[in-house]
Write a protein that binds this DNA or RNA. Structure first.
Lengths: 342, 342
DNA sequence: ATTAGCACTCGAAAATGATGAGTGCTAACA
DNA sequence: TGTTAGCACTCATCATTTTCGAGTGCTAAT
């Protein structure tokens, strides 16, 4: 059986309708509400064909049709209207993201909130992995007799602070040590730091013998443990407004998934970083989200792919609008982070 | 009408039963399952009296009774069994909270997670308000040409880091400035810092004229904006397992409330800090939680009341067990934070 | 190839009925 | 006088039935 222009038109109409009503759509309503110029009987025949092609499915015998995963795929690939964001909405996003520019974290948090709010779904964003950026500078600041703050600065201007429980140190000594560390470690990533590199520092500082022996294991453990990719999630509860999440069990399963950093990370970080990816149902690669869809994109920091941004919602989502928003936010983030040493 | 011993016994039985089944309890089941030694008819009469006294209510004519707010109040005040935590559970809590002791924040986050997990309800905890603790030390660390990290250390060993966007500063200059600031501000709380105090610093450092003129407004704004009380919430989704939250609308309203830091703060911080408070329904003081209950207590840092810890759930909660957990965690936190300069 | 028409299907919603847990009241009883 | 057995009555819940209508597939006419 061939798939012709008209079938595609009908498929598009069905999906458009289903996206906005969440109800299976039948031949009569279709004939009534869309200018297809053919009768419901003809539509019925075509629909039967579309079902045979695996693009539609019937919840039960006497109901209308709903799109299948493959149907959505075709819709997203070739049928849907790619809408652009309205001017004023663009301005709003831009203004909000630009307003709060001291830290990358803050911008990113703002962005994910915005994304959730605009789409009415759940938004997820991952931060650039600090472990992979090059160290530029290392400092330790004595907080009090029991505590020192370790500060790692990356070449892109990001930094990370880590409190250490260290007894009675002296700021001058700490400065000497961090100077030596900076010399040795500058340009490396945290991932690159091994026991051996730390060992070399120790040999540079033999004069502080005892204290170094005390400090180094702590630093070693600290470097070993810096490792989680940060993920921010926003708008998890938005889905309660959607008809597909009206049974608490369903909603609860979704919430549980959204609370698992690892799963989210895995799903976010998979795939290459180019362009926008639309993952439909099982394509997401997570059983728990097999009846959801995800739109995901990588934003850049200093023109290098860094973190990912995504929106997750029911398969029946407004792909056109969502893609537009994700794209615009990705673009704006990349722009904000381009070349600026935060 | 007098309220005698037997009535109280019946009330207690009804509430115990209702807490565990979530079903209105009738006279027959009561007579069958509790060793009251009287017939269902007698119980019926007593129940009618208890209803007249406002301690019970009937969802509809031919249903059993459920406790009213006043009923719960009486239960909590005089009837319920105060159970203590089991030894092994105590050990578990203790071990978990002790294991992770570098930062107060970490302990507190661990505690709130634990509380939610053990009670199966929603747990909330507020941090000691940094604004109210006395400043001990102020530092600024140059991160790079555009950025400086401001570190405020309190006398209890807590600290707060605030990134500032400041151009091309020099670490020596920063040290001079923070030394002057420390001299002037030590012992004050952040709340105490006014425009005038900042002005005096400026006069100490006339030699750095231009830079100070640039820096001071930034610091002024920064001090003015440090102000939010941190609140951690954990286990919001736990309530989905409870029968009273089976309609999504109900659950959603609860989630919304739990997302409002201000409302939570208000509710947490109200009341004096002594002992454990059980707030039933409207006593919480928030319309959105009028059919929930809250158990709340203040923990201490250095033997001074600091933050609050609470668990929030349906009115039909196991008050005895919950009070025990809250109490033990409060106690353990206070102990961990007693006298230790973190 | 298209469409009108028709018989048929089947879920959703409304109507009906049985069930049973619960009540209040009364009269008998210890 | 307090307690209890008994009884009529209430009413939510659940299962069953009925109705309704949107939808389908098929056939025959255009």
């Amino acid at each position: 059986m061939d798939i012709n222009e008209r079938k595609l038109l009908i498929l598009k109409a069905i999906i458009d309708d289903f996206i906005s009503t969440a109800q299976p759509v039948g031949s009569r309503t279709l004939a009534k509400n869309y200018p297809l110029g053919i009768s419901s009987a003809t539509i019925r025949n075509e629909m039967a064909d579309l079902e045979d092609l695996g693009l539609l499915q019937q919840p039960h015998t006497s109901a209308g049709r709903i799109p299948s995963g493959r149907g959505y795929r075709m819709y997203v690939d070739t049928l849907m209207k790619h809408s652009a964001l309205g001017r004023n909405q663009q301005e709003k996003i831009r203004a909000l993201l630009m307003s709060n520019m001291i830290e990358l974290d803050d911008v990113v948090k703002q962005a994910v909130k915005l994304l959730a709010q605009i789409t009415g779904m759940t938004a997820v964003i991952s931060l650039p992995n600090f472990n992979l950026s090059k160290l530029e500078n290392i400092k330790m600041v004595k907080i009090n007799e029991q505590k020192v703050l370790l500060i790692l600065v990356s070449d892109s201007g990001e930094f990370k602070t880590i409190p250490l429980g260290i007894n009675s140190s002296n700021q001058q000594v700490l400065d000497m040590i961090t100077d030596a560390m900076t010399t040795r470690l500058r340009g490396l990533t945290i991932k690159d730091i091994t026991l051996r590199t730390i060992g070399t520092i120790k040999s540079d500082l033999s004069e502080y013998g005892g204290f170094i022996d005390y400090l180094m294991p702590i630093l070693r453990d600290t470097f070993r443990d810096i490792d989680q990719v940060e993920v921010y999630v926003e708008g998890v509860h938005n889905v309660l407004n959607l008809p597909e999440f009206q049974e608490v069990g369903r909603a609860q399963a979704f919430f549980d998934t959204m609370e698992s950093r690892e799963k989210l990370c895995e799903v976010l970080e998979s795939g290459d970083g180019g362009g926008i990816a639309v993952r439909i149902g099982p394509e997401i690669g997570l059983d728990e989200l097999a009846d959801c869809s995800m739109i995901k994109a990588a934003y850049k920091v200093n023109n290098e792919p860094a973190g990912r941004i995504a929106v997750i919602g029911p398969m029946r989502m407004d792909y056109g609008a969502s893609v537009a928003v994700v794209d615009y936010i990705r673009e704006t983030l990349s722009e904000i982070f381009s070349g600026i040493n935060l």
